[in-house]
Design a protein around this nucleic acid. Structure first.
Lengths: 137, 137
DNA sequence: TTCTTTTCTTGACTCTTTCAAGAAAAGACG
DNA sequence: CGTCTTTTCTTGAAAGAGTCAAGAAAAGAA
């Protein structure tokens, strides 16, 4: 189980809830908190929601998972980190899909005028309708 | 007062709360809901928060205002619509600044792989630290 | 002015997320 | 292996943003 190594390498203590949360996020890309809690409880029925929230917060802080929160959606988490990919969100059903960066690496970080901000990340969200919702209308 | 014309052109009824909300959003770019409510009540002390929420929802639906919600922030509204600009958000204090599109017009809408989605908008959020927070550290 | 439709007020409520205090577990050291 | 310190988890309560529902009020049409 190399999930434990990931935690150790990030300087975090290895605990059952953290391993389970990390596993759940890997197994359910773009899952919201409720989904993560459910998935974690499949293996550790007794975990508190607070432990999950805390684990997610810790993992996010260490860069092992990434938190995304499109307008109108609750917080979602994913395990693809550091590869500069973006997301497509369906306006109708909220479904999320991954998109690799359209422009390449660095250009995404270039703003036309940074207003003096020290920019470290460019997040891109494409909005539209997923195939299912297009068919449904 | 051409705010009323804007409402009419969008096919909306002209009411005091709506005019006040529209005015407040124009006066306070990137304001959160609480700020909008306060600003509206400076002129209409009796408005309910529900009327403000409802007005914002209606105005957003008609494209007169735009709702943005960066991860970790509450909903914010702005009046610059349809000009394809983006935002810089400070990780420390949450301050938001406008950035004109770095790439121009259409290219922003091009994803490398759209997964069958019908994309109609690309939202870009630059993350970093604002000048004030950089100095403070 | 009167009527119909839409919008606003009031008040309760849901849902996500956070706070706080004590119990439990992880890792370090001998 | 056992003890100690620090971090994490459990439990329970609560805050904050946003929503729901029903009746009153106002906007626009005739």
């Amino acid at each position: 189980m190399h999930l434990q190594e990931m935690l150790r390498e990030a300087g975090l203590r290895v605990t059952k809830p953290r391993v389970a949360v990390l596993d759940a996020v890997h197994a359910h890309p773009h899952a919201d908190t409720e989904t993560v809690i459910s998935a974690v409880r499949d293996r550790l029925p007794e975990v508190s929601h607070q432990a999950v929230y805390d684990s997610l917060h810790t993992l996010t802080g260490s860069g092992l998972v990434r938190k995304i929160q499109p307008t109108g959606s609750v917080a979602r988490y994913e395990s693809r980190v550091g590869d500069n990919h973006h997301h497509i969100v369906c306006r109708s059903c909220g479904a999320i899909a991954d998109v690799d960066c359209a422009v390449g690496g660095a250009p995404c970080l270039t703003a036309s005028d940074d207003h003096g901000f020290a920019i470290d990340e460019a997040e891109v969200i494409y909005w539209g309708r997923c195939p299912t919702c297009q068919t449904a209308s």
